[in-house]
Structures are given as structure tokens and as C-alpha cells.
């Protein structure tokens, strides 16, 4: 019974907040163009479900492809930098600049240089997502057990053998932790990119629909987009968390039973 309560706690909390919101909106007689209640949002979600689903599809496509590209290029860059101190010294500051530059400020240039709008969105989402992967993978590559390295050297392992059997498995937990952060950032990047790039029409994503709806004071629809984006972010995180646990379950502290409070 206590366990069930523990499990339900966040959901109950959410429902209480939603009920208070709905009650407040009704009792205060607040018009829908100022603040719609959750019921109105739900109705808007149902009415526009087809359109919003298409939008979600577009945003999700940008998010997932950008994340995959970030995973490949980020891990690649980190591997390159781990090969030599010189390469790291040369490249890492630029990785940091990439991270600290708000993508909103870069967007206008990318829009001028890249004609394909999907390409623009990809580039911007990639920019938002790639740094944690570079940074975490590099950290992982640098923290490979020095004695294990010696052992591989002692047995005359080739560079490929060392990479496949030591560096990659040893770095995997760090890479995955970077990937989990990058998943959320990729979605944020895709959303921000859509908003600055001002995509419109049939092939626009959920963020564009949100913007359109808010311009038209269809706040219920805008909030429905917002809710869908939030759920998508949660879904991406959950999926990446599952992947991480799945890949590390046999050996890494983060994925073993002990770290889950004995569940």
C-alpha cells in the first residue's frame, strides 16, 4: 500500500495542480484567450489532433536525426581529441564556443547560407546537442584505467583491438550520459530553430504550430502543442535512459540493481 502511494505521488500531485487550475479558471471566469483551463486544452488537442500529430512528426524527425548526427560527430570529435594533446588543445576551445553561442544568434546566418529549411533546423538542433556528447566522451576516453591500458600494451594489442575492446566499452557509460543530456537539448534546439527560422505551412513542426496558435490567440491549442512537446521530451529521456540501462546492466553501477534502491 505504501509502495503504491509512493508510485502514485507525482501523478496525484499533477492532478491536484490541474484541478486547481481548472477550478481557478472557472471560478474566476477567465476568458480562454487569456488562460484556458486543462479541459479546454484537452478539447483543443482532440480537435486538432491530426494536424498536431503531423507537426510532432516533423519536430521529432529533426530532433532524432540531429541527435544521431550529434552522437556520431560528437563521439568522433572526442576520439580525435583523445588521440593527441595537440588536437585537443587545438579543437576543444571551439567546441566550447559552439556550446556557449546561443543558437538564436547563429540562426540568421544559417538561414542565409543553407537554402533547405530542414537542413537549417538540423544544423541548429545539432549545434544544441553535440557539446555534452563531445565533453562526456572525451572525459570517458581520458579516464580509461591506466593499468588496463598497460595490460593491453603488454600483450601487444593493436590500436584497433585496444579501441574495440578497451576504449569503447570503457567510455560507453560516459557517452550514454552525454547522450541523455543531448536528447533533451536536441529537442530544445529543434523547437528554438523552428521558432527563429519561422517555418510555416504543411511541413512545419509543432513549435511553429504553437507560435501560429498563440498569434491567433488560440491559447488552448498553443498549450496543447506545449503539452505534447513536454511529453515528447519526457519520452526521449525515458527512451535514452532505458537504452543506457539496457547496455550497461551487467556491469555499470548506474544500471545495476543496487542503484535502483532494490526495485
Amino acid at each position: 500500500m505504501k509502495k503504491l502511494g509512493h508510485f502514485l505521488l507525482p501523478y496525484v500531485f499533477g492532478l491536484v495542480i490541474l484541478a486547481a487550475w481548472e477550478g481557478g479558471v472557472r471560478m474566476g471566469d477567465i476568458p480562454e484567450y487569456i488562460l484556458p483551463g486543462p479541459v479546454a486544452v484537452l478539447i483543443a488537442l482532440r480537435t486538432n489532433f491530426g494536424e498536431l500529430l503531423v507537426g510532432l512528426g516533423v519536430t521529432l524527425q529533426v530532433t532524432v536525426i540531429a541527435l544521431l548526427l550529434a552522437a556520431i560527430t560528437g563521439a568522433g570529435f572526442a576520439f580525435l581529441m583523445a588521440q593527441s594533446k595537440l588536437a585537443e588543445r587545438m579543437l576543444f576551445p571551439y567546441a566550447v564556443i559552439l556550446q556557449v553561442t546561443p543558437i538564436v544568434t547563429v540562426a540568421p546566418f544559417i538561414i542565409i547560407w543553407v537554402s533547405n529549411i530542414f537542413g537549417v533546423l538540423l544544423i541548429l538542433a545539432w549545434m544544441a546537442a553535440v557539446f555534452p556528447i563531445i565533453s562526456n566522451t572525451l572525459f570517458g576516453l581520458k579516464s580509461v584505467d591506466i593499468n588496463l591500458r598497460d595490460m593491453f600494451r603488454l600483450y601487444g594489442a593493436t590500436k584497433t583491438q585496444t579501441a574495440m575492446r578497451l576504449l569503447i566499452p570503457s567510455t560507453l557509460p560516459h557517452f550514454l550520459s552525454g547522450l541523455r543530456i543531448a536528447g533533451g537539448l536536441s529537442l530544445i534546439g529543434a523547437v528554438v530553430a523552428e521558432m527563429v527560422a519561422g517555418t510555416s505551412g504543411e511541413k512545419s513542426g509543432l513549435a511553429s504550430r504553437l507560435l501560429e496558435a498563440s498569434y491567433r490567440l488560440e491559447l488552448a491549442k498553443a498549450l496543447a502543442c506545449f503539452a505534447l512537446l513536454g511529453l515528447t521530451g519526457l519520452l526521449i529521456f525515458t527512451a535514452l535512459d532505458w537504452l543506457s540501462r539496457r547496455l550497461l546492466r551487467h556491469w555499470h553501477e548506474s544500471a545495476t540493481d543496487a542503484s535502483q534502491g532494490g526495485n
Binding site: 593499468n147 588496463l148 598497460d150 556491469w251
Partner: peptide, 12 residues
């Protein structure tokens, strides 16, 4: 060579 720590690969 036997190291001070067992130096085993935890993933294997």
C-alpha cells in the same frame, strides 16, 4: 603481469 588492483574489465 598482476597489478595491485585486480584490473579486470568490468564489462566482461
Amino acid at each position: 603481469f598482476v597489478f595491485q588492483d585486480a584490473t579486470l574489465m568490468p564489462w566482461a
